[in-house]
């Protein structure tokens, strides 16, 4: 078997651009899914039954269907339902954000619930409102507790962005697979793709571990 690694160098610019889009998509998804997760978690915890039920349906729906299906659905069905045709990047972002928001909501809910009742009572006893207690006492503590979990969600998300390649978002996986079908250099390109994902992903995983050690709960 003759290998020709020059193909990797030949397309290095294209691959770099794909990797850039992967990173951008990860950041954009989290930028939507963190606030989205907080809002959903607060809805789940609110005494209002309607809000509660809406959030529950959202979370249980988007958490329990395969991400790839969600990607296809956003690409084929969403435009029909909404009447909008979104560019592939935005479509991929919608699919990922729906899924990750649902996960983040459960993370935040667990984080909020992990702050013991006495903390809220101490705030209430000072005369604070429930909203003030949430904002000044519960959420800041919950945020620290969920940071390690969010970090590992981030690391998974970074790799899961590859699923949007099926709708031709020009991120790393899609770019690499395109080059593969142009050049038929399957082994070289897939290896390069693995190396790039690993080189980018490993430091993130290490960072997540570090965050875990630094911010993990110790009381």
């Amino acid at each position: 078997m003759n290998l020709d690694w020059s193909v990797v160098w030949q397309f290095s610019g294209t691959l770099a651009k794909g990797a850039g889009i992967t990173i951008l998509l990860t950041i954009a998804t989290m930028a939507v899914a963190v606030p989205g997760g907080i809002v959903l978690a607060l809805m789940r915890l609110s005494p209002n039954r309607v809000l509660n039920w809406m959030a529950l349906c959202f979370v249980e729906f988007f958490r329990n269907i395969p991400l790839i299906l969600l990607v296809y659905w956003s690409f084929y069905v969403l435009p029909v339902l909404s009447g909008l045709t979104l560019p592939p990047f935005t479509t991929g972002l919608v699919a990922l954000a729906l899924n990750v928001s649902a996960y983040n909501s459960e993370t935040f809910r667990a984080g909020i619930n992990s702050i013991r009742k006495g903390q809220s009572e101490a705030g209430l006893a000072l005369g604070m409102s429930h909203i003030e207690v949430m904002r000044k006492i519960v959420l800041p503590q919950a945020a620290r507790r969920v940071l390690p979990v969010l970090a590992s969600t981030w690391v998974s998300l970074f790799k899961d962005t590859s699923l949007v390649s099926v709708i031709a978002v020009g991120e790393l996986a899609h770019t690499a697979l395109e080059i593969r079908s142009q050049t038929f250099r399957i082994l070289e390109i897939l290896t390069a793709m693995a190396v790039i994902y690993w080189v980018l992903g490993y430091p993130q995983a290490k960072l997540a571990d570090w965050i875990y050690r630094k911010w993990g709960v110790k009381e």
Partner: peptide, 23 residues
């Protein structure tokens, strides 16, 4: 709720497990 808050502002409470805000 609003009136209760006013009353609570005029009472201090100390808990068995302190409940200081750790952050």
């Amino acid at each position: 709720k609003a009136e209760i808050r006013k009353v609570r502002q005029r009472m201090g409470m100390v808990f068995q497990s302190f409940e200081l805000f750790p952050h």
